[in-house]
Computed example of a mutant assay.
Amino acid sequence: MSVYDIDLFLRNKEDREYSWRWQKESPVWNAQPGTAHKALVKLEQAGMLTLLATQNFDALHEKAGNSDNVIVNLHGTIGTSHCMKCHQEYATADIMARLDEEPDPHCHRKLKYRGDMPCNGIIKTDVVYFGEALPDGAMEKSYSLATKADELWVIGSTLEVYPAASIVPVAAQAGVPITIMNMGHTQYDHLASRLIHEDIAVALPKLVDETIAENK
């Protein structure tokens, strides 16, 4: 059974209950920001981060303290949810808190045009499930800001998943210097002006501190 398959999720109650329960018990939901996440907060606070395009949907950048102004969640986020019928937004934490009472969450928003009857639409997390499109404007914003940047850093990505990986050649074509920080090699290493094959938890905070110091 697939947790992130939109067709299965919509198909029946049992699949939705399984998906919600699995997500609540998964390491993704219970994860906490690490040193690398906190380093990116420091970079933003220094006024040196204009785009944080991430394929991770764990909401750790938000938890760490990066702002919505710079974060682009290319594959959505588990931090928020919405009603698939009326589009009411929910904090996923609130849904998870009452999952034992309501294992198949539905929207309780009262609709004025229906005499205050509840919407009763299906609620899902804002993670992009298989079969769904990426969030509107996510790639366009990423391309636009990446091509205008002084530098582009690729942190911990194999650069094998598209369309996210295409940000690198697009930025390179615009003449933006590229740093790739990843333990393994990637198909776009030849486009990088700097390659860092070190533990991100150590290497990224170091790079952030050096960059801030150089630009004071």
Rank of each mutant, 00 (worst) to 15 (best):
N215H: 15
E132V: 13
L51N: 03
E14Q: 13
T80S: 08
Y18C: 06
S144Y: 10
L51H: 06
N12Y: 01
M96A: 04
I180D: 00
A172Y: 09
K85W: 05
N215T: 14
H190C: 09
D104Y: 11
G65S: 01
T35I: 07
D126E: 14
S157I: 11
N182D: 07
E25P: 01
L10C: 06
M48E: 06
Y113H: 13
L207D: 02
L207F: 01
E89C: 07
A149N: 12
R114N: 08
L159D: 01
L159K: 03
D136Q: 15
K216E: 06
A53L: 11
L60R: 10
G121L: 07
A91E: 13
I122L: 13
V128R: 02
Q88A: 14
K216F: 05
A165C: 09
K124E: 04
D150L: 12
R16V: 10
D58K: 15
A64Y: 00
E160T: 11
Q55V: 11
G175Q: 06
K63W: 06
Q88S: 14
P163H: 05
M139R: 04
N30C: 12
E25T: 13
T179L: 12
H106Y: 09
L99Y: 11
Q32D: 05
C119H: 05
K141V: 06
H87K: 10
W20C: 04
V161I: 15
K24I: 03
K124D: 05
H61N: 14
P118A: 11
E14S: 13
G115A: 09
S193F: 10
I122K: 06
P27Y: 14
R16I: 03
N215E: 08
M96T: 11
G34I: 10
A149H: 14
E101H: 12
Y129E: 13
C83V: 04
F57N: 14
S19Q: 05
G115Y: 07
Q55P: 09
P27E: 10
L60V: 12
S26T: 09
V128Y: 00
G131Y: 10
V202E: 15
